[in-house]
């Protein structure tokens, strides 16, 4: 469904994305993990048109969308959420979600009605008339999901929807993400919360210093020596292996 080939992006001397190729199959939840500063959010920005890649291509539903602006990409059915939540402050939850709904709905009344519907799905149904700025962090994360969902996307890119939430909130939001997939929406998510990655995603890509270093099922990937080193430092994989051998 989404095919990324050889994406390169440099900011000055830093290669934020170094020849990254990955693919997201339809109907799955795929995840992208990596330590802070690995270039995950940059990769999202490249895929969704917020940055233009220096080289490489992005294909979505078989079409080349490299370099298209974000609104055109959203119109084709791929939307993203933001790691740092971006509510339309001063507008109500209902109005916020309606902006997403308006992508395919002309009438204001229909868009507002659809917003209500979507709000119910993500658990915001009781806060429709609240100012988006007065929502809790968890509420705003739900709002990000709702707005993206209201555009009737085929693929959603979630940028750390669980970051900053406490364990009980995370337990609440995980089913919401799963429900999105149940509706037939493909998902690519960036996540630090490993509990979520392990329980949600079927396939994981690992990014470090702008380059992909591993891929596979979440369970395979966490044991991969390069991944361990990326998170814990050079030599750690070896030391852990030694200690395990010692214990055995």
């Amino acid at each position: 469904m989404l095919e990324v080939r050889g994406l390169v992006k440099s900011f000055g001397g830093v290669k934020a994305s170094n020849n990254v190729s990955l693919s997201v199959p339809e109907g799955r939840i795929t995840s992208l993990i990596g330590p802070n500063g690995a270039g995950k959010t940059t990769l999202f920005a490249l895929i969704t048109g917020f940055h233009k890649p220096d080289a490489g291509s992005v294909h979505f539903l078989g079409e080349d969308i490299t370099g298209l602006p974000p609104e055109k990409i959203a119109q084709r059915g791929m939307v993203r959420t933001f790691q740092i939540v971006q509510p339309f402050a001063g507008q109500t939850v209902r109005e916020n979600i309606a902006v997403g709904a308006h992508l395919h709905v002309q009438s204001r009344a229909d868009a507002l009605e659809k917003a209500e519907d979507v709000a119910g799905k993500v658990g915001l149904g009781d806060r429709l008339d609240m100012d988006a700025a007065s929502l809790t962090v968890a509420g705003r994360k739900r709002l990000e999901v709702a707005r993206a969902l209201a555009t009737d996307p085929k693929l959603i890119l979630f940028d750390e929807v669980l970051a900053g939430l406490n364990p009980s909130e995370i337990r609440d939001v995980i089913p919401v993400i799963r429900a999105v997939r149940e509706e037939g929406v493909t998902i690519l998510l960036i996540e630090h919360v490993m509990q979520a990655v392990m329980s949600l995603s079927e396939h994981t890509w690992v990014l470090n210093q702008g380059a992909l270093i591993a891929e596979g099922t979440p369970a395979d990937v966490v044991g991969h020596p390069l991944v361990v080193e990326a998170y814990l430092g050079k030599g750690m994989a070896e030391r852990i292996a030694k200690r395990e051998a010692h214990h055995a």
Partner: peptide, 13 residues
């Protein structure tokens, strides 16, 4: 209120 968020939702700013 937020141009980037609007564009991400398909609004032709």
């Amino acid at each position: 209120d937020n141009e980037d968020a609007a564009r991400a939702l398909g609004v032709e700013a």
